[in-house]
Design a protein around this nucleic acid. Structure first.
Lengths: 224, 224
DNA sequence: GAGGTTTGTTACCGATCGGTAACAGCATTG
DNA sequence: CAATGCTGTTACCGATCGGTAACAAACCTC
C-alpha cells in the first residue's frame, strides 16, 4: 500500500497560524484533506499538522475523529443548501430558469472538481453499518431531491417527482463518472442530456437565458 | 474511529480450508471484504484470517496488497464483461431487447446490493494519484460505455453515443444514490426513467417481452 | 499584576498497518 | 526413498492509527 504523504505535498492550505483560531484552521484543513484523500485516507495527525497545530489541540475541540467527520458532513450539506439561494437569486421568480440554473451549476462543479460529491464519497467510505454519518448523508440527499422535485413542479413538469429523480440520477452519475473516466467521459454530456430529459417532461426551454455559454465547442462525441 | 471487526462478524464466507487452494480462498475472501468494507477498510491480516490461512501465504501469492487490489479490479471488470454475453444470449439478434435487458439487469443488481459498483467505489478510495488501479477502472468504464453505444446504434437510436452516455449516467447515479438513500430513493425509478430516455431517442419499446415484470406495484412516488 | 483559559510540547498507550525472515511440517512427485 | 515445493507458525520490523496524561508557555481579561 504505497503511501501518499511523506512530503507535506504543497502544504495543504498553507494556513498560517494566528490568523484564525486553531479550531477554524483544523476544520478548514480537515475539509481539504477529507476531500482530497478521503476520510479513511487521512489521519488526525496529518490534519493537525496541516493546520499548524498538534493532535492534542484537535482533540480538545473535536472529541474524536468521528465527531470531526460528522461536523464535516453537516457543513458540506449546509454549504450545498446555500447554493440553492444563489440559484434562486440568479433567476428570481423564474422556476424554469432556476431549474436550468441548477443543472448548469452542477455541471460546472463537476467540471471543476475531480473528486465528486463529498457526501456520496463518504457514504462509500463509511462502511461500518450504522455510522452516524450515514444518517446525515441520507437526510441531505433526501432534502436535496425534495427541493428539486418542488422546483420541477413549479416549472410545470408533467411528473415532477419522476423528473427530479431522473435529474438526481444524471447528476449523481456524472459526479462518479467524472471521477472514473474524467471530464471527457459521459459526464461531458450532462447538460445536454438533462435538457433533453427536462424537455421530455413538458418543461419549455428557458426564455430569459441570462448567460448562454459561448456557442463554441459544442460537441457530442468525445474524440476516440 | 470506531472499528468494525473485533468479532469475525459471521465469518466472511466460511471458506473451509482444503476444499480450495489457499490462493483461491484468499482471492475469494478479498473480493468479499473489499466489497463490503472497502479497499482501505480491510487489512491483509483480516483477509488471510478470513481465508483460513495467514499473511505469509498471502504474500507468497500476491506480492503486495496493491497487486491483490489490481487483480481484484481486473476480475471485477472481467466478470462484468461476462454479463454482456448473458444479455446477448437472452435476446439473440434482438438489439432492442438487449438494450432493455441491460437496463433491467442493472436495476436488479442495484436493488440486490447496497454497495454499488466496486470499480467506482475503488476510484473513490484510491486517492493516491497515479495508482495503477485507476487505469484499470477507467479502461473498464470506457469499454463498457462503448459497448453500450454500439448496442444503442444497433437498436436504432437517433444519437447512439449520446443515449449511451445518458444511460451510463443514469445507471451510475442509481448505484451511488442507492448507497446514500437506499432502494426507496431515486434509484427506484431507474428503469422507468431509462425507458423514457430510450424512447425519446427513437428506440421503440421491446416487442417480444420475454419476462415482463408483474404489473403490480408500479408506483412513481415513494411514500413520503 | 493576578487569574483563568487556551494553547503547545512531549511522551506515552495499545492496536493495527503493510511487509519480511527463518524454520518446521507436510504433501506431492520423481 | 529422497528431493522438492507449498504451507503454517512465530517472531519481528518500522510506521501509523486513534486517543490520552501531564506540564509548561502563552494569552486574554479583570
Amino acid at each position: 500500500m504505497t503511501k501518499e504523504k511523506s512530503e507535506p505535498e504543497a502544504v495543504a492550505l498553507a494556513v498560517e497560524p494566528g490568523v484564525q483560531r486553531p479550531r477554524e484552521r483544523i476544520f478548514v484543513c480537515a475539509q481539504d484533506l477529507f476531500h482530497r484523500r478521503g476520510i479513511r485516507g487521512v489521519g488526525v495527525d496529518a490534519i493537525a499538522e496541516a493546520a499548524g497545530t498538534n493532535k492534542m489541540t484537535l482533540y480538545r475541540h473535536f472529541g474524536s475523529k468521528d465527531e470531526l467527520i460528522l461536523e464535516y458532513l453537516n457543513y458540506k450539506g449546509r454549504k450545498s443548501d446555500e447554493v440553492w439561494t444563489e440559484i434562486e437569486a440568479a433567476s428570481p421568480g423564474d422556476p424554469i430558469g432556476q431549474l436550468y440554473g441548477f443543472v448548469d451549476k452542477a455541471a460546472k462543479f463537476i467540471a471543476e472538481d475531480e473528486r465528486g460529491c463529498d457526501l456520496a464519497n463518504a457514504a462509500v467510505e463509511l462502511t461500518e453499518e450504522g455510522h452516524p454519518g450515514l444518517r446525515v448523508i441520507e437526510e441531505f440527499k433526501v432534502r436535496q431531491r425534495d427541493r428539486l422535485a418542488r422546483l420541477c413542479g413549479a416549472a410545470g413538469a408533467s411528473r415532477p417527482e419522476l423528473l427530479a429523480d431522473a435529474l438526481v440520477l444524471l447528476i449523481e452519475g456524472a459526479r462518479v463518472s467524472r471521477r472514473s473516466v474524467g471530464t471527457e467521459g459521459p459526464s461531458a454530456n450532462l447538460v445536454r442530456t438533462s435538457k433533453a430529459v427536462i424537455a421530455s417532461f413538458g418543461v419549455p426551454p428557458r426564455t430569459k437565458h441570462r448567460s448562454q455559454p459561448k456557442a463554441a465547442n459544442r460537441r457530442i462525441h468525445r474524440g476516440k
